[in-house]
Design a protein around this nucleic acid. Structure first.
Length: 475
RNA sequence: GAGCCGGUAGCUCAGUCGGUAGAGCAUCGCCCUUUUAAGGCGUGGGUCCUGGGUUCGAGUCCCAGCCGGCUCACCA
């Protein structure tokens, strides 16, 4: 039977239901107190009360037995069995129930009971259909945790997320937890006295692909601000990249790098507690405890540890390039010392940082907005955090010296002229703000999609995005 | 952006050597008043991603394109 014919059959059932005096789509409200899980959890107590209960959900399984039927209703989180029989519903009620299909939403009223096989169920006296599904839903079947035939085609799961959500509980849980994580992040900064701000998206400097999309116009007069915002990148899609993603940025005046590290530690701990109820989570067979402070390592020392390249070799461009060649990396594209150092970090160090770790001391060329380290020429007061070999945050002491910042922008313009289109653009408005006076401040960015991926153990970014980027289907 | 793999019924998939497409579930009909991947009997359902080409004949072989997956590159 073609899909069109199928839809016509269900439309006919809808018409018949209306003829029998019930229009599912006319219903607005249906009151019920308990979720499916609550009914199951408190089953014996509720049975003892002997009260009529109500429940509403989607029909996700149906077993007809002649003049009786068993349905399973899902409220999204859980499902409970419902038992209906002709004697209880009456002629009209029974005829309406015979017009029900998988995918319909119904409300039921009745008493709780256990079947012969001890299945906790609702013995229904009244049914109230509230929507009619006009398509065959890819629900599949399941038994003891195993399932068959349900929607699994990756493309279709993302194109029809609503179907994914009802067919795949794991997918649903993943997306709910992502939302909880973002919410918990906000709770953390709110309770710490930060002001949430929103910066305009449509005025952003086009092509500002390097570093940060938001500039810190706000933090001159507001000591603690954060923003959860959408960011766009015209780059390839992968299991770690989506053209638009969600970024947390926070800024706090009068604090140093160590304070920012503490913020990050506290934020992760807070989120774990709020979302999972524990600071300890298991990922990839390892246990991570966010109660513990993160490791702190110096960038150059970590490069030496994992590549053997000594800090002295990374003092100037030529010897750094020679060292890079020695360890077998291509050097043709490199044109500055900082770039080489970051490449070495990427190739030798990042994968080794399984435990939560802050890498401190980034080169000046790749950190155009970070304060210089007074004790180390060529390096800045900047760190990145890594967990399971992946970057989770990028933080630094903001430059508040307008002269220094102007020089950095000019260096970036030079790099841009030399062909580096990732170089930071000049921003006169930002410089003007600094010239008017800005206190010392720490700033930090955390990719919330990747934070969610990490905390939820997902290997695919799209699994924690409700609507990952998909090209339009052809007609 | 490059390489490799994939696209067949509503869903999950099979389809041999090139000979006009199959299964399970879902659907539809009948039976069944405590079933649970309910069961029994029966039924229908296909632009084989699209467009070309080779061939007497293409789901199958060739070319181009579209969409997706994986890996790489870029990055967060």
């Amino acid at each position: 039977m073609a899909d069109q014919e199928f839809t016509q059959i269900r439309l006919d059932k809808l018409t018949r239901m209306r003829e029998l005096g019930h229009d599912p789509f006319a219903v607005e409200k249906f009151e019920f107190k308990h979720s499916a899980q609550e009914l199951l959890d408190n089953f014996d107590a509720l049975v003892a009360e002997d009260q009529e209960i109500t429940f509403a959900g989607r029909i996700v399984a149906m077993r007809e037995m002649g003049k009786a039927s068993f349905l399973q209703l899902s409220d999204g989180d859980g499902r409970i069995q419902v038992y209906i029989k002709k004697d209880d519903l009456g002629e009209t009620g029974w005829e309406i129930s015979m017009l029900l299909d998988l995918g319909d939403h119904i409300g039921v009223a009745g008493k709780l009971f256990r079947t012969r096989t001890e299945e906790r169920s609702i013995h229904v006296s009244v049914i109230t259909p509230m929507s009619k599904s006009l398509h065959i839903l890819p629900l599949g079947k399941e038994k003891e945790g195993e399932s068959w035939g349900k929607l699994s085609d990756v493309e279709q799961r993302y194109r029809h997320r609503h179907l994914d959500l009802l067919a795949n509980p794991e997918a649903r849980k993943m997306l709910i937890n992502r939302a909880k994580i973002v919410s918990a992040v906000r709770h953390y900064f709110d309770q710490e006295g930060y002001l949430e701000v929103e910066t305009p998206l449509l005025q952003l400097e086009a092509g500002g692909a390097a570093a940060r999309p938001f500039l810190t116009h706000y933090n001159a007069d507001v000591p603690k601000v954060y923003e959860v915002g959408r960011v766009f990148r015209n780059e390839g899609v992968s299991n770690r990249h989506n053209p638009e993603f969600t970024m947390l940025e926070f800024y706090e005046a009068y604090v140093n790098l160590e304070d920012m590290m503490t913020r990050v530690e506290e934020c992760f701990k807070f989120v774990c507690l709020e979302v999972f109820g524990s600071t300890t989570i298991d990922l990839g067979g390892h246990s991570f405890d966010f109660e513990k402070p993160w490791h702190r390592v110096d960038l150059l020392e970590s490069i030496e540890k994992f590549s053997g390249i000594k800090p002295e070799e990374l003092r100037d461009f030529d010897s750094a390039k020679a060292a890079m060649a020695r360890v077998g990396l291509p050097t043709a594209k490199e044109n500055n010392l900082g770039g080489i150092i970051e490449k070495l970090l990427e190739r030798f160090v990042e994968n080794e940082l399984q435990e939560p770790t802050f890498v401190v001391g980034y080169p000046i060329e790749t950190s155009p907005l970070a304060k210089k380290d007074p004790n180390r020429p060529g390096f800045t007061r900047r760190f990145e955090g890594y967990i399971r070999g992946r970057e989770v945050c990028n933080a630094f002491s903001e430059i508040n010296d307008p002269i220094d910042q102007r020089e950095r922008f000019e260096q970036q313009l030079g790099a841009r002229a030399a062909g580096d289109d990732e170089a930071h653009p000049m921003d006169e408005e930002f410089l003007y703000a600094l010239e008017c006076g800005m206190p010392p401040a720490g700033g930090c960015g955390i990719g919330l999609d990747r934070m969610a991926m990490m905390l939820l153990g997902s290997e695919h970014l799209r699994e924690i995005l409700m609507f990952p980027m998909m090209k339009p289907e052809q007609d």
